[in-house]
């Protein structure tokens, strides 16, 4: 946060992260091997909230751990901990009736992904359910795969803006300050996921990890600030 991230995305570890690439897979595996539970994730959010009441926090995860907790129980516990929104990777708008009902009741946003392949008709069906912001996936593939193709981004973001008032964040394939700046020139926010997790994994201890985050996110922040616009950087 000190280095300039505006929003925090925290992953709930899951054994079968079908839509994620190797970096997030391994991060989940490490977390599970060390016994990280859903309650630990809520605890982390609560502790963070004692120091920072403002920065929005999004939890990212998969359906099965939510179902096991019970959607309503999960939702109210997340709200109590201080979570603002949920991104459930394997819960597209088509299957989200139950989750959006529970999240609405607790004042949480459900954030949906939109892909380059998402048709206009799908987009129109999804927009009324979406809350918080819209997460545009910049490329075909899993998280942390090939690099961003900035040329397609402008029209894609305009297509979403034409149908929704919500800010559009772009993610997947953004790792350098240059890519972040390119993405931010088209969108309202950029999401850095695998690139940050990958850098953290190489760290030996907490202080090195903190230095790494400061330097890396700081670099992204500077690149975004050089843009005249009102762009924001989100980091997970």
């Amino acid at each position: 946060m000190e280095s300039g991230a505006d929003l925090l995305e925290l992953g709930i570890p899951f054994s079968d992260v079908m839509a994620d690439g190797p970096v997030i897979q391994k991060a989940c595996q490490r977390a599970l091997e060390r016994g990280t539970s859903l309650d630990d994730v809520f605890e982390m959010v609560s502790r963070f909230r004692q120091r920072d009441a403002e920065t929005p926090i999004i939890l990212m995860g998969y359906m099965n751990p939510l179902e096991r907790r019970g959607i309503e129980a999960f939702s109210s516990q997340a709200a109590v901990a201080g979570v603002d929104g949920l991104l459930i990777v394997d819960c597209p708008a088509d299957e989200a009736v139950e989750t959006t009902r529970a999240f609405d009741a607790d004042g949480l946003y459900q954030i949906f992904l939109i892909a380059p392949t998402t048709s206009d008709s799908r987009l129109e069906r999804m927009v009324p359910l979406a809350g918080g912001f819209i997460y545009y996936v910049t490329l075909k593939g899993v998280t942390g795969s090939a690099a961003l193709d900035a040329s397609t981004l402008g029209p894609a973001v305009r297509r979403i803006h034409a149908r929704s008032e919500l800010p559009v964040a772009v993610g997947f394939g953004i790792s350098t300050p240059e890519q972040a700046a390119q993405a931010a020139s088209a969108a309202d926010a950029v999401v850095i996921g695998s690139a940050l997790v990958d850098r953290l994994h190489g760290c030996r201890d907490l202080s090195e990890a903190l230095d790494t985050v400061r330097e890396y996110i700081g670099g992204i922040r500077q690149a975004l600030d050089r843009l005249a616009g009102e762009s924001t950087a989100a980091a997970s």
Binding site: A19, M63, D90, P92, D94, E95, L113, A115, S119, V137
Partner: peptide, 22 residues
């Protein structure tokens, strides 16, 4: 029509696959 057998089935995948499945 949406792939459900009672409460079972459906299409719990990332949005990135939805169009391909359609």
């Amino acid at each position: 029509d949406r792939g459900h057998f009672g409460v079972f089935g459906g299409r719990f995948v990332s949005e990135t696959l939805m169009t391909a499945l359609e």
